[in-house]
Every structure is written in structure tokens, then in C-alpha cells.
Write a protein that binds this DNA or RNA. Sequence first.
DNA 1: GTGAAAGCGCTAACAA
DNA 2: TTGTTAGCGCTTTCAC
Lengths: 342, 342
Amino acid sequence: MKKAKKNSIKGIAEKLNISVTTVSFVLNGKAKEKKISDEMIEKVLAYVKEINYKPNQLAQSLRTGKSKIIVFMVEDISNYFFASIARKIEDIAYEKGYKVLFCSNENKDAKSRELINLFKDRQVDGYIINPSPGIKNDIEELIEQDIPVVLFDRYFPDLETNYVGINNEEASYKATLHLIENGFKKIGFITINTGQTQMLDRKKGYQKAVNENNMPEKVLEIDFEAGNYLQQKELIRNYILNQDLDAIYFSTNYLTQSGLEVFKENSPELIDKFGILTFDDHDFFKIHTPTISAIAQPKNEMASQLMNQMLSLLKKESGSKDDKKQIILESSLHPRNSTIRK
Amino acid sequence: MKKAKKNSIKGIAEKLNISVTTVSFVLNGKAKEKKISDEMIEKVLAYVKEINYKPNQLAQSLRTGKSKIIVFMVEDISNYFFASIARKIEDIAYEKGYKVLFCSNENKDAKSRELINLFKDRQVDGYIINPSPGIKNDIEELIEQDIPVVLFDRYFPDLETNYVGINNEEASYKATLHLIENGFKKIGFITINTGQTQMLDRKKGYQKAVNENNMPEKVLEIDFEAGNYLQQKELIRNYILNQDLDAIYFSTNYLTQSGLEVFKENSPELIDKFGILTFDDHDFFKIHTPTISAIAQPKNEMASQLMNQMLSLLKKESGSKDDKKQIILESSLHPRNSTIRK
DNA sequence: GTGAAAGCGCTAACAA
DNA sequence: TTGTTAGCGCTTTCAC
């Protein structure tokens, strides 16, 4: 005679001389609904506790089609901005009984697609994605298949999705005005050459501010390719040294880092001649000399909102049509020494 | 008559008028071994490709007991050191067909245990763990159950496990000598009050070096509790200002960050009076003023070795006894301006 | 109120 | 060389 494994519903049923159905109902809180006697419930629960039974998620998932796993895909998980959000997402997810698969798409469409395909047809309940520019179709497909998707940081202008981000254009506009108010007149904007909406919006905000103030637009667009880091720095160096600028505004944290390295390598005093401003804050900007003014995104708030949306999508009956929500959060400008009037 | 879903082995078998076994064998590369005709193989493969069939991992896992998921548990995934390693682990894992669940234990035993229990009895093939001090028993249990475990960064002295790390004591000893060689005589060591082996080893290295050179041991041990960040800084401030020191050596990156903030807040020139050295490197140390000398751990190498070990454990027949390997990597000292002789 | 049994999609021992 | 079938552990319909 075959012996059922102890740590399974079958084992429990056998031991207690009841059916697996009863056990399952009790375990899934459907006991009342199914009018199972209190006595029975008590018995099952006690034994379950005694043997410290944990249902096999795998079997559960196979049966229900739900894996309790969500994917968190970002450009680069080792980037402080993303890592911080990841940390918070993790907390909320685990608390709600979900696990999180992290992955980095390196801002490459091929990598994004590969990852999505890897997870699709598989046991993933939802996606939180920081999308690379060319995967609109893939996102669309996911949505059509009723798979919960929430984008963040960047979006697709003509695709209605759930989304969490900040108003990059406005934040950038205000930040540029901050420079202008402090007397800077020849403001350079260093960004990457990309279709990423958040970057384009930041550029727009910058352009709007300088144009309104009759100042020249001075934009450096760097081809973003992981790997040619040195070449990137060389471009920044040339730009800083040879353009006639009195302030430099970096559109994202890793450019700022490269830029600060350039200053450091050239001469310590050089940086004091410029106003410096950056998108994305970092604790190190507070201890840099000079301290660097920065636009901070509300990372914790972003993470909460992302999980809020994800959890509510997860709860929804698949197929139930509903509005896609776009959540736009407030960023904040932290003025520090680097933008003090010279 | 029931219609099998197209995207399943059954569907394929039905469509091609063959049995699921044949399909399964072909799909799992056992065709040759099972002497399935080339013609048959061809036919199956072609159809599989045509409908872009992907096997259901869940069912596969339930059947085989292997989930192709590994857990990467660290103190805090948003810490740059861990995030960098995570990024590399991710790359290797996905390449080998594994997915990675990241989680942070906050260096708390309870959290570690909770997470391990969450994954245990569940669909996780292996664990890469940066253990909190009190979970030796839990790790032991995993190993007894033949579950692949690799520890890193810190270990349990009297527990033989697979492990990847650096020789913290030696690295710390050499780093302290570097300070001494540059003329510093009153070297303070700031660390956290913890049982973490890597921290204890770093302290030992420091102590050995100062003792050998007849210098005083000046150690500040801070209670590590997430949350009382300000209090932490206050302790550091008092220590720096009131002890008679000419150099300060921080045992880990977040203490360094707090320390640098203290200097920054008190007065810009103050820092130039001290030699400053830190464990764990960061790009920002290269652009800090002064540039900060640091001991760098080989993050990429650590990640590769971790995955090497994990993959080889995963491959092994469960139950096959084998030696646990401890891999000790070389760290490197990056002398910068902060330790130049004053 | 409780139980029997089908079936999620897959693997692999055994049969033919 | 290929097919039949049990069963991984669970949920849930239907029957009693």
C-alpha cells in the first residue's frame, strides 16, 4: 500500500481519516462557506500546525495558474535609483505574499524582449517595467493578454498603460529656472541620445526655460552604449572645456558621475567656475565638494504606488475592463552649493 | 470530445498523431538515447517551432522537483556592494536558465529565517546567502537537507560550507600598514558592534598592525540598528572630534558615508587634518575631496565564483558527498589622496 | 457537511 | 522505436 507523503494534503487527509477536499477547504478558508463543522476545522488546523505543513506552491500554481511571482525589470539593478526602489518593492511584495524576480534590460529592446518571453507562458503574475524605448508592441501584447503591467519612470506617449512617474518636464523646467535665478546665463544640458521619454521630457523642460529667458540652448547628446564609458567622458570633457558655459545641468545620475570625474581629473578648482545641477539625488552629492544641487525623485513613494497598482491589477478579475491609471508624483529640488550664484 | 490545448505536449501529440512520450523525449533531448527516428524528431521540432511552443515550467517543476530558481539573499539589496554583485549574478543565472529571487535580510536573524522558511518547502533550487550572525542552525539545516547553499562575504567559523569571500584580516592588516607607512600614528578604527565575521576579521587585521607597531588600539564600535542613523552619526562625530586621532579607518562603506557627512557638516577643512581609509570601494570615492583611499573587493570575481559554486552544486546528484569549497579572493588597496602623509 | 474524482502539464517507468 | 499510464500536490465540481 502506498503511503502518501506526510507533508501533503493527501497525507493529512489519510492521517485524519477524512478526504482531501475537506482539508483543502479548511486550508483555503472555505470551511464556513462549505459548512464544515467547527470540530472538523479545529482538528485539521491543529494537525496542520503540528506537522508545520506548508502547501506546495508549485502544485498550487499549476492548478490555479497563479504563481505569486512578479517581475521587476529595470535598466540596471545596480543603479542606486533602481536598487532603492527595488528594495522597497521587495518589502511590500513579500508582505503581500508575492515574490519578486529582478532583472536588468540594459535599456536594450532585445534584452527586454528576451526577458519578457522568458517569463511569458510561464509562472509570472505581473510585470513592473522600466521599458526600453522600442518595446511598445511587447507591452501592448502583454496588456491585450490581460497580464498586469505597470510601467514606471518612462512610458509610451500613445499607449495607455498603468504608469508611475514624475512630471519630468516640469521638474526640469523649474530646475533650470533655479539656475537662471541664480544668475547663470550659459547653461549647458548634458543628456543621452535616446528615445526614453523621461529624458526627452527633461530636455523639453530645460529648453522651455532657457528659451523663455532668451538664453541659448546648449545641448550635448551622448550616444548611450554601455561599454564606451571612456569615450563618453571624453565627450563630456570636450564639451565642458570648449563650449562657452557657466553652468552644466546633467540629465541623469550616471552622467553626473562621469562629469564630476572629468572635473576631478582636470583640476580641482575648475568645478567652482560652473553652476552644477543634476537629475536624481544621491547621498554622495551632499558630501561632494562643492555639494551638488539635485532634483530628487520620491523613490519610496514611487515604489508604494507601483505596488499599489500592481496589487489592484492582480486582484481584478481578468477580463474586467478598467481604466488605466497614470500616477504622476512630485519631485523636489534640493539646492546646494553647486548652484550658488558665482 | 475533449480538445487538448494547443500549447501543451498533449496538444502537439494530438496534432501530430503521436504520443506525448515521443514529444517529451524529443523536447528533452532524449530522442537519440531513446532511438527515436530522425524523421520523427524533425517533425516534432518543426511543429514545436511553428507554434512557438514553450513548456510550462510550473508543470515541469512540479514533476521534477526543480524550479530553476535560486535565491540571492543579502543584507540590503540597495547597498552598492550587494547590488553590483546581484547584477552580475543575474547575468550568469539567466544565461544558464535560472531565475533569481532577490531579498534583503537587513542583517536580522528573524528576517533571514522568515525568508528561508518562505522559500523552503517551496520551489527554490539553491541559496546564495550573505548570512546574518545568528542563523547558523538554519544554514546547517539546509545543508543537511541537501539543498545547495553558498555563503559569501561572511561565514560561520565552525561550520563547513561553500563560501566565497576575501581575506578580510589580511586586507585590513595591509591597509592599516599603509596608514602607518604614511606616518599616521594615532589611527582610529570605526566599526559596528556585530558578530559578523568579516567585520571581526577586519578589526583583527587593524589590531595586529597597530599592536605590531606599538601604537594604541582605538576602536569605536557602533550598535548597528537600522533607523538610528542620526545617533550613529553623532557617535562618529564625538569620536572624531574628541579622541586624539590623526587617521580614521572605516570598516565598511555606510560608516564611511556617515563619517564623510560628519566632516562635511562640521567644517570643510577638518578632513584634511586626518588620514582617511575605508573598506569597500565606490566610484564616488574617486571624486570626493580629498579622494578617499579604499580597499576594494573583487565584486565581479565574487559573483562569478558564487555562481560557479552554485551551478556545480546544482548539477551534483543530491546525496553525493563532496567537499565544501572555500574560495578566498584577493582584495586590492587603492591609495588615494586621503592617506597621503600630512 | 463531506467525499470521489477529474485534471492543471509534464516526465519517465513500463509495455508493446 | 513508440505508446500507455501513473503520479507530482493541489483545487473544485459534482455527487451523496
